[in-house]
């Protein structure tokens, strides 16, 4: 097994994740980029598990498990925030959140036209 293949895959996935985080306006898509990054890290951890004989066996895989758990927790909280943001602003574009103005009141759901239903 040549470890360079999964390593390079992971590196490219990480780069794609960074690209996605920086490029996308929709908060959910940003979170998808974050997932890509986390997966890339997991892949590196698993591959490192094969290339390195750690003191504790399979510690790379154990770490990968933990990362998956963390990712799940993170995505839960993150999406809760996104949905709350949507309730307040009726938009989840990350560059439409000015930090120096007072927060608007919650926008009632009926005032927001559904996209695609114009």
């Amino acid at each position: 097994m040549r470890p360079v293949i999964p390593y390079v895959t992971a590196a490219l996935l990480f780069g794609l994740g960074v690209y996605g985080v920086l490029r996308r306006r929709n908060a959910v898509l940003v979170l998808m980029g974050v997932e890509l990054m986390l997966n890339a890290v997991n892949l590196i951890l698993i591959t490192a598990d094969t290339t390195t004989r750690a003191l504790l066996p399979h510690s790379g895989q154990v770490f990968a498990l933990f990362v998956i758990v963390l990712a799940a927790a993170e995505i839960g909280v993150g999406l809760a925030i996104v949905l709350q943001l949507y309730r307040m602003r009726a938009s989840v574009a990350v560059d439409e959140v000015p930090l120096d103005t007072a927060p608007l009141d919650e926008v009632p759901m009926d005032k927001v036209p559904m996209e695609g239903q114009r």
């Binding site: 097994m1 360079v4 490219l12 990480f14 780069g15 794609l16 960074v18 690209y19 920086l22 490029r23």
Partner: peptide, 30 residues
């Protein structure tokens, strides 16, 4: 462009680092 720059930099940089580290070596699967 910032996304491409930084994402490309990160991805390709990491890849270069890892290629430089491992080259075309083989390992035994555990």
């Amino acid at each position: 462009w910032p996304a491409a720059l930084i994402g490309g930099g990160v991805g390709l940089g990491l890849a270069a680092l890892l290629i430089d580290a491992f080259r075309w070596t083989t390992v035994e699967l555990p």
